[in-house]
Write a protein that binds this DNA or RNA. Sequence first.
DNA 1: GCCGTTTTCGGCCCGACTGTTTTCAGTCG
Length: 575
Amino acid sequence: MDNRELAETFDRIGDLLEIKGEVVYKVLAYRRAAESIRSQSRAVADLWREDELRSIPGVGEALATKIDELMRTGKLDYFEKLKREVPVTLVDVLRVGDVGPKKAARFWKELGIQDLPALEAAARDGRLQRLRGMGERSEARILKSIEALKARQTSRVSIARARPVAESLLERLRFLPGVAAAEAAGSLRRCRETVGDIDLLVAARRPQDVIRAFLSFDDISRVRGQGDTKASVEMASGLAVQLWVHPPEHFGTALQYATGSQAHNVRLRELAQSKGLSLSEHGFKQANGSIRECDDEVEVYRLLGLPWIPPELREDRGEVEAALEGRLPDLITQADIHGELHAHTDWSDGAATLEEMAEAAAQAGLDYLVITDHSRSLGVANGLTPERVRQQRRKIDALQKKIGGRLRLLHGTEVEILADGRLDFPDDVLAAFDLVTASVHSSLRQSRGRVTSRMLAAIRHPHVDIIGHLTGRMIGTRDPADLDLEAVFQAAAEQGVALEINAHPDRLDLNEAHARRATELGCLLAINTDAHRPEHFALRAYGIGIARRGWVTLANVVNSWDVDQVLRWARGHAR
DNA sequence: GCCGTTTTCGGCCCGACTGTTTTCAGTCG
């Protein structure tokens, strides 16, 4: 049983317990454990074999026993019993906005509603509004929420889709009279790979004016809620947006609050309590009732006795402890990256010429660019034959002479790792490249053993320098290959082969948990855009975001090195 | 159900908004 399935099981148990009316802290304990398991950088199955389950934050005696049962038998008696008490289809009812555990339980017990279609039918028949404490408006709200739930395919969208929408709104908000500042917060600011909704924070003296102006933006299609200090809307595109408006004196605490994560905020508020303070978005309330305001986020953390914690780390994954102990990682930044090691041209499936890609790389401020077109067996991508490889080398050398010292051009390849683990070019062809990235694009559905041994063979191949987009996953459309990551990371660390963090927002592969584990094991990493057109060099921001969420520091990122160091490494490691 | 230089028992963040209520429960982030 993998981490995701395990986390889902615990989440589901939490949902059922909540509907059943169990004390909330037990529910929270299951959810906290689920989240902790989801963000584990190691497979829980491995920890189970090593008898280390209790090292997972939020897993105590009772949950460790349950994980053990799930690992041994694939089932959990406790969960099965629970499902006989509470219909498991009710968890779908919980997904409806404005319906929480209390209402779900009442709909079930008083109206016999066990699933989403039954809820919708009841709402349409006007049966919900006849319940005590309900009314016409509540029923209409629920019906709208059901429609919204059905309309969107998944509840989360790519960060790359959300960011431009947020930027567009922020530009307009900053232009409003009386607005001192406007920033994106929430999961967007924390650089999660997907975001559930867009959270925006505005500093202004007269919040109601800002909210009124915001609600009149013409791309807003529905107002979900509005008050004196916040508004919640849906965009025409279906994206949900939340706006908070606070006076400038509160901006520090408000930004901290709106950035989250919720789990991180809970940790900070507990820390505040231990100092006799009560922390909220309005400030620190002292024991005598007076409020200490903060217009600056750094000050919020300072008052808690902490250094400022970068938003990407705020997930309650050990960052508060690290901050308390003065061992926060010195995270990689965009400015640390000096070269692109993975880019395509129209020689294979890229959209632009060598010249155009070189020009764009120089414009993007890069010092060096490695051209890595596909190898021959990737027919759909017009992969290069050895003969075309030699032609491309001559073309690159000529172009280098033409552009001079502005940009160092290197000749590389993204060579296919074939289904049997061999590479798609013979050794003498590979030897002629400045840099070799090896990737898997097909036969991703092979067994765990086979995919892993293919990957290990590639890592141990004397000419391979980088493994591209390791798992092959495409967010939302293609599952990652089933790999023994621990074995892959160890081999990569031993061989000095770098693992790519592919910055394309559909890939982000390694993901943040993998990046963190790879870093712990001492792997080298490469943060690449896999650019197929000039504007793709800008995608690096998303790769940097994931790297930072994976606690990646400057030390082991190969494209933070200068070109000579990269070439020395490419020639020298484990050959 | 978890967790501990204030505790192995008794805590477990804080506030805004909504709708149905005559003072509050439920939901959400």
